[in-house]
Write a protein that binds this DNA or RNA. Structure first.
Lengths: 192, 192
DNA sequence: CTGATTTTTTGCTAAAGCGCAAACTTTTCC
DNA sequence: GGAAAAGTTTGCGCTTTAGCAAAAAATCAG
């Protein structure tokens, strides 16, 4: 059993227990993947048919506005899931690209297996529901902060909460996350 | 049985069925309230102990940033819930005010009764989980739009999706929602 | 109905940040 | 190790929008 799958199982069992039989099933129906830098994991325009638990590395999610400018609504770091949740759950066309920013290791589960787990793994639905609630609260907070905080404040909060992103991700990408030009971000960093 | 409670039950049963006995329990342990304009429903600094299904009217959620400026992360309209979800689920201090913008009718359920429903109403947890997932997807979309769309685009989307808000809410409030000054919003409206 | 209050509009000035260009630094890769 | 590519910094002019003030319009309340 891989160290990467262990991390995923640990995340699940930190919420509710899973039997060893169920763990074996999850192991059997998931695959550990290594991805190099700049690899596309999920594509704009496609229907998302897999979910990836990030064991190592950092991904970016990229969306393009009507004027053709790229933005990064969020980064996906270790211990989180690389997936377009809307496309995955509703099987609609994805409106975002998911791309690695560093070499990454992910535990990938196909949607058909994921759906199977909902039936075969006793606590799976509750675990997923718990994770979704956590995601909802975080998304809620980040949306509010997007409105009430200026770019400097949001940069400082990002630095406090996710130093790994500041260290490993280029300024260009962080600017795309903050919604400012890389020039402005360079000046913000110079004056703090 | 009030017409307002009917709306709430209808929302629930559109997701999964509820027995008439369970409906009676919900009826017994909830209260219909009328609120006049500018009434505070949930307060900054308190612990949220109730959730309100909005049957009529519009609420604003208000957050204040470090510089003391007020913003409106979202409006709550008919068919949605007036609640600080983070404070309600985690019983932490609320960081937002929830205030009526019009006369409102809400079906209020105390947290202790809400928690009781999770045990006593067979499908309640699944229904709430379904609603939270919907909320997550919407929050996700709105957060992305906050980043990728400029104020003009976000105003146009708000007008398309929620004409009732445009009609009934003052421009000042809409400006606080968009994150721009009321002067700029006035000029945006003039040129479209 | 009418005066008072609130909301919206508009002109003006100042500040913030964008976008371009060019220099400089760091990283990548053969 | 060194050339090429990628990323970062900085100056400068320009656009956008905030913020103030005051007028105009709409709404509210007795």
């Amino acid at each position: 059993m891989s160290h990467h799958l262990d991390k995923l199982i640990h995340l699940f069992t930190s919420i509710l227990p899973i039997s060893s039989k169920e763990v074996a099933l999850i192991h059997q129906l998931s695959q550990v993947q290594s991805l190099q830098k700049r690899a596309q994991y999920s594509a704009y325009g496609s229907i998302c048919k897999k979910i990836g638990f990030v064991s190592e590395g950092i991904f970016k999610v990229v969306r393009t506005n009507a004027q053709g400018q790229d933005f990064i609504p969020y980064f996906i770091t270790e211990g989180h899931f690389a997936v377009d949740l809307e496309s995955f759950t509703q099987q609609t066309f994805s409106e975002e690209n998911i791309v690695t920013l560093t070499p990454c290791t992910v535990v990938t589960i196909d949607k058909k297996h994921f759906d199977l787990f909902e039936n075969e793994v006793a606590n799976f639905s509750k675990i997923i529901s718990h994770l979704k609630e956590k995601a909802l609260l975080e998304k809620h907070r980040l949306k509010s902060e997007m409105l009430i905080d200026d770019a400097v404040t949001r940069y400082q909060k990002l630095r406090l909460r996710h130093p790994a992103i500041i260290q490993q991700v280029s300024q260009n990408h962080i600017a795309q996350y903050l919604g400012i030009s890389p020039y402005t971000l360079s000046r913000i960093r110079a004056h703090s």
